[in-house]
């Protein structure tokens, strides 16, 4: 068995960065996020704290991403794609909730008729080094959402915190190769996998998608949405929210088209020419977010779009808590049809 002694983390990351673009969790500007290694001065590795404030979805779905440039001359137009150069990429320290979210993004961007070329260019060469969670935080409820905190998936290597070292376990062929490339930086040592701690936050989602299918017009939605300001922070920080907008930037006749994160919490998201908006009111947008997470995605892709990371609970300025919302929804008694 292999371990990565904690003193050698920088050495290991440097070695990986020789051939790959490496991303690590860092504390930055009062928050935390995944950032390229080597990090900038002031950044501090954030391996020991729980979830980063921004999720690692940035690694596969950046907040803004140029898609192509264009130049118009007279009546002619030329288009040039500006996609990422394909290069091996490694993301270090992804937790189970966040890798489950990447699995959901894979479903969206790589299946159902179309492969999204921009996503694929970032995702395919990506090696995920997952980090087993042994001590869930006060807002973590991944286990309730069917995620095993000790078993991030998809993943190429899993690391386990052993105190002075990380237990290192390759989980895929690519993970094996990466392990070999680290050679003598890893040490041989037997270790016992730690077990997961107790979850403070629990909720029962049994039968929830089926129940929600009959609750679209339930008056509870208006009450639940009441405090929401439609600020959209929950959607930006969520590891599995993926909605995007496509916009254009140009100077004169040259410019580029890019995509950027969008949020179903904003009225413009669905506003149509002429002013008609199918989700024109706050509670309709709020309802769409929760139903997408808990019902629609399940119906379409066979899995929940909430992985229980707890970020939205921490970040919501209005104290809206998805676990309490699920509990309220579960308490509703519906007439048996």
């Amino acid at each position: 068995m292999k371990v990565l002694v904690k003193d050698k983390i920088n050495t290991a990351l440097n070695r990986l960065a020789e051939n790959s673009q490496v991303y690590v969790p860092v504390h930055r500007e009062g928050g935390s996020r995944f950032a390229p290694w080597p990090t900038v001065p002031g950044d501090e590795l954030a391996l020991d704290s729980l979830n980063t404030m921004f999720s690692p979805k940035e690694v596969v779905l950046p907040q803004t991403e140029k898609m192509y440039t264009f130049a118009a001359r007279g009546q002619s137009v030329e288009i040039k794609e500006t996609g990422e150069e394909r290069k091996e990429r490694v993301v270090f320290g992804v937790r189970a909730c966040d890798s489950k979210a990447i699995a959901a993004l894979d479903e969206v961007f790589l299946t159902r008729g179309y492969e999204d070329g921009f996503y694929k260019a970032r995702r395919e060469p990506l090696i995920i080094i997952g980090k087993a969670c042994t001590q869930p935080g006060p807002n973590c409820f991944c286990s309730a959402m069917g995620v095993d905190p000790l078993e991030p998936d998809p993943v190429d290597v899993i690391i386990y915190d052993l105190g002075d070292a990380y237990g290192w376990e390759p989980r895929s062929e690519r993970g094996q190769k990466l392990t070999q490339s680290l050679g003598d930086i890893l040490a041989d040592r037997d270790f016992q996998k730690p077990s997961a701690g107790e979850f403070q936050l629990q909720v029962d989602i049994n039968g929830l998608p089926e129940k929600l299918a009959g609750m679209f017009e339930h008056p509870l939605w208006e009450e639940l949405a009441e405090p929401c300001m439609n600020c959209g922070i929950c959607t930006y920080l969520c590891p599995s929210c993926y909605c995007f907008d496509i916009q254009v930037k140009n100077r004169g006749t040259e410019g580029y088209r890019f995509r950027c994160w969008d949020s179903c919490m904003y009225p413009e998201y669905t506003m149509m020419a002429g002013g008609h908006n199918p989700r024109g009111s706050k509670h309709e947008r709020f309802r769409n977010r929760f139903l997408h997470k808990l019902e629609f995605f399940q119906e379409r892709y066979g899995t929940s779009l909430c992985t229980g990371c707890g970020r939205c609970i921490v970040a919501c300025p209005q104290g809206i808590n998805i676990v309490s919302i699920i509990k309220r929804l579960q308490e509703v008694e519906l007439d048996v049809r």
Binding site: R112, D245, T270
Partner: peptide, 24 residues
């Protein structure tokens, strides 16, 4: 049906009605 659309390929999210994407 008509909903606002951006991607046209069932990815960008906005044209859903329930779990169906109107573009796709």
């Amino acid at each position: 049906l008509e909903m606002r659309m951006k991607c046209g390929i069932g990815k960008c999210g906005r044209c859903n009605i329930g779990s169906e994407y109107i573009c796709l």
